[in-house]
């Protein structure tokens, strides 16, 4: 179906940018220009070029100062999705609220605001953390990556592509946090980091390949109420192992014993 897609362009024209604004603000008429089953990467490229532009623009603006008296205002300089930000914020403002309400990065979601659901997961200096339990003030000198910054360059991150392929979401509200968390998980596996279900704490390895059980445990900080867990595991497994799998396959093989419950 590639002939249904526009030619990729290095720079978006004003018209295309407008079109994409519409795409991003609504599932309106313009989506047809970009959507296809088999070419999410192509679509991603266009959307992401646009996002990069928008993000760059946002970076030039100093976020609004909230007049609370000098005592409570905190100046913070940090990087968000590779753009330098200098903001003055209410000391109470969490990173989550700063992203959403000040920096127009609404991809990061507020599911519980208390560190109990994982919807607000972002990466801080390459590690997954919860933005709802992080004060913006604590971000001085840090580098934050949100879902909007996951796909650098002109293609989607493989994790994003895999989530689409394996239908790793339904409502999509927990998805930004799931994807950021999954990317963090991959880093942790590459560092040979452990989880509670790891068999032997003493055995060290530079990098480890995770079983499904390990993926499940390591993703347990991200609740999904729609119940996409098996699809999320399938998406992560595919990216983590590099082995493509059929999203519709009946998984259980009667010739094998059941998987290993560990807890």
């Amino acid at each position: 179906m590639s002939d249904n897609f526009p030619e990729l362009v290095d720079e978006l024209t004003a018209d295309e940018a407008e079109l994409l604004e519409e795409v991003l603000s609504d599932l309106g008429e313009s989506r047809r220009k970009f959507i296809g089953q088999s070419s999410t990467a192509v679509l991603g490229a266009v959307v992401l070029q646009f996002l990069a532009k928008r993000t760059a623009l946002a970076g030039e603006e100093m976020a609004e100062f909230v007049p609370l008296g000098d005592e409570q205002a905190v100046k913070v300089s940090f990087r968000v999705n590779d753009a330098a930000k200098s903001v003055s914020v209410d000391s109470r403002m969490t990173l989550l609220d700063a992203l959403r309400e000040k920096l127009a990065l609404t991809g990061t979601k507020k599911g519980c605001d208390h560190g109990q659901c994982g919807a607000c997961t972002v990466m801080m200096d390459g590690r997954r953390v919860l933005s709802c339990l992080t004060l913006t003030a604590q971000c001085e000198g840090r580098s934050v990556t949100t879902i909007e910054g996951v796909a650098k360059g002109d293609v989607l991150h493989p994790m994003q592509t895999a989530f689409i392929k394996h239908d790793g979401f339904q409502c999509g509200f927990c998805t930004p946090g799931q994807i950021c968390s999954a990317i963090g998980l991959m880093h942790e596996a590459r560092n040979g980091e452990l989880s509670y279900v790891s068999k032997d704490m003493r055995k060290t390895a530079a990098s480890i390949t995770l079983s499904d059980e390990e993926i499940r445990e390591r993703m347990s900080g991200n609740l999904c109420r729609c119940g996409a867990y098996p699809n999320i595991v399938a998406a992560i497994r595919e990216v983590h192992t590099g082995k493509a799998t059929d999203p519709m396959a009946v998984i259980f093989d009667m010739s094998k014993e059941g998987s290993d419950a560990t807890v």
Binding site: L24, S25, D26, L27, R31, F34, I35, Q37, T40, L43, G44, V47, L48, L51, L105, T106, G107, T108, K109, T146, I147, E148, V150, A151, L156, Q160, T161, F163, I164, K165, D167, F169, G172, F173, T175, P176, I179
Partner: peptide
């Protein structure tokens, strides 16, 4: 068919 709104959901651009 993959979700046609999937691209928005995985890029954080689906507006709730």
């Amino acid at each position: 068919v993959n979700r046609i709104d999937g691209i928005f959901k995985v890029t954080g651009t689906a507006r709730f």
